[in-house]
Amino acid sequence: MTAMPRFRGLKSLAISPPSLRDENRKTLRVVLPALLFALIALAGAAGAQEPLRIVFIAYENPDQLVENVEPVIDYLEGRLGGEVEHFAATDYAAVVEALRHGSADVGFMGPLQYVMARRQAGAYPILGEIYNGSATYVARIFVRKDSGTKTLADLEGKTIAFVDPISSSGYMYPLDAFKSAGLIRTRADADTFFKRVYFAGGDEQAIRAVLNRFVDAAGVGQFAFGLLRGGERDQVVHVAESRPIPSHCVVVRKDLDAGRVDALRDALLALNEGPNHGLLEHLYGVDGYVRVDASTYAEVEDIARQYDFIPASGSPAP
């Protein structure tokens, strides 16, 4: 169960691999005071060079995250030559909200959340994360090794645990893997293909549900496997994986000054190598960044539309 007081999960909120970050997006906690503060600050702000405001998504302890990223903030202030403010949200909706209302200029989010929020937020992605050497990751369908399950087709009439109804690697892409295998066509098909579909609330909860034989399969991000211990890992295996999912992204609000966007992008790209590379440790432990634009997420948007996460009539990606 994903829960606010998370007693299990990753060792540090600051190094959550991307697929694991979906799980806590839905919890809403301390962001409101921070948002309020930011809004008030915005209302009272004036002058040519307002501070750049960054909202980070926190997967565990927001206060700790705010502290952890401070070296990055110092670096950005040095690079950009102006004040940088930051706060943490525990909920992607809050990130989207902050970008929409202009209380934040920059935010971090997952691919599905980005495409779902694109129109409302009026924001666009500038950088994608490189994690484990890759700008993409995959979702996988895990089963117990001793289950005899060899293919996705074997899971017809069985139970499956996904992570959350709004999750890239923990729902939509696993569904898409079943679609690619010709087993389902729509989200609704899943309800008839499987005996029962559960949402476990987190990657770890979902993969443990398979390990402990609560369900027959789990559709989770690839990094969920790493949350199991050695002896546990030997008991589960994946029988399929999704097409590549673009990694989490850095998005900016649509009317942020283009010059500031370029400066921010350059500053973050400069972390890919050189003396400040170690700062990435504070930015979710990514290996670096890669340039992206809305087209990088066109396929995500397309899939999201097929599964009714966004309206079929929605405007195409710019």
């Binding site: 169960m1 994903t2 839905k26 992607y92 909706a93 989207v96 909200e97 929409r100 959340q113 779902m116 929020a117 409302q120 937020a121 645990a161 959350d164 109804p165 709004i166 579909v197 559960y198 949402f199 476990a200 609330g201 909860q205 549900a209 609560f214 369900v215 996460f309 966004i310």
Partner: peptide, 15 residues
């Protein structure tokens, strides 16, 4: 799992 599933989701800005 039934209980967590029964919570539903607020979605992203309602979506």
């Amino acid at each position: 799992l039934e209980l967590t599933s029964a919570l539903g989701t607020p979605g992203v800005l309602g979506a």
